[in-house]
């Protein structure tokens, strides 16, 4: 076969494969790529959705970055990283380790129950937690019963506790996801390995460090990426639980975007904030993927 013919075949194969992925590419371009470019484009305009837009260059970025509230909003997101991502991963790992060592009857039932928070609508979750956290809610009732009435408070309405209280809602939602993915990864661990390890006298800590963690490294990084993204772009839980309050104590960047775009109609500023948030999320997930690749190498 001549070289020319070979090249033709290769090119034909490339174009025909492109044809197969064309529907997916088209949908992706229309609903993902185009809106991204449109958002970047809008971030250079001052536009109120009524009058014609005015080109302002980087002014929207300057405005957003000179607003002290945006930094406090990003700092709240960082706190949420702890509650939405790191703690759920720790809890998920703990449950996985326990289930690895202890066989419980009806394990799949408990697994389904523990995963439930992940599939309930976040609006329902936020409203339910609002009742749980209320001044006359069950948490305070329990505290009062055990003589700790002095520390009872409206957990979501108190400036000192609201951020942590919202964070705990995120923990409750995400630990199920972590657990399920870790458990599915742990099923790959051979029983022979575990038996040999236990005959050699490995304790729980050693089993965790030398068997569980290396076996589910992939799952851990996937959960980390999903939950980190969730923590940084979180809107629905905060909006339905506190609306960013009391004051601005639970405000997050997504709330800024929502209010700027849909309430105050500062579309350019909303687009600029969205782009900045996307950069932060991409940077964090990019670094994680890099670390994952390096650890695989």
């Amino acid at each position: 076969m001549s070289l020319k013919k070979l090249m033709w075949r290769f090119r034909y194969a490339e174009w025909s494969s492109l044809l197969f992925i064309a529907p997916a590419i088209s949908l992706f371009s229309i609903f993902v790529v185009y809106p991204i470019f449109q958002t970047i484009w809008l971030s250079f305009w001052k536009w109120d959705r009524i009058s014609p837009g005015v080109w302002v260059g980087l002014d929207n970025y300057k405005k957003v970055l000179s607003n002290p509230e945006i930094y406090s909003a990003f700092s709240h997101s960082l706190v949420f990283v702890l509650f939405y991502s790191l703690i759920p991963i720790a809890v998920g790992l703990l449950i996985t380790l326990l289930l690895l060592r202890v066989k419980i009857r009806g394990e799949s039932f408990f697994r389904a129950i523990l995963f439930l928070p992940q599939i309930i609508s976040t609006v329902v979750v936020a409203i339910s937690w609002r009742w749980i956290y209320a001044a006359d809610g069950p948490i305070n009732a329990l505290l009062a019963k055990f003589g700790a009435e002095k520390i009872t408070t409206a957990w979501l309405g108190n400036f000192d506790t609201s951020l942590i209280a919202v964070g705990i809602i995120g923990t409750w939602i995400n630990y199920g996801l972590a657990m399920i993915l870790f458990l599915s990864g742990a099923q790959r661990i051979s029983q022979d390995l575990l038996d040999a390890d236990r005959i050699d006298g490995a304790n729980m800590r050693q089993e965790f460090r030398y068997i569980l963690i290396p076996s589910i490294k992939g799952e851990i990084s996937i959960v980390l990426i999903i939950t980190l993204t969730f923590a940084l772009r979180n809107f629905d839980i905060v909006w339905n639980a506190t609306q960013g309050g009391p004051g601005n104590s639970t405000n997050v960047p997504s709330l800024f975007i929502y209010k700027s775009a849909f309430v105050n109609r500062y579309v350019g500023e909303a687009a600029a904030t969205s782009f900045l948030l996307a950069i932060v999320i991409l940077t964090v997930t990019g670094l994680l993927l890099l670390a994952r690749r390096e650890s695989h190498d």
Binding site: F37, Q38, G53, V267
Partner: peptide
Amino acid sequence: AIVTLMITGCSSPGSDTG
């Protein structure tokens, strides 16, 4: 070419209202 097409596809916002 795709990026240019996407950017140029975005006209001045609000130019077709009112």
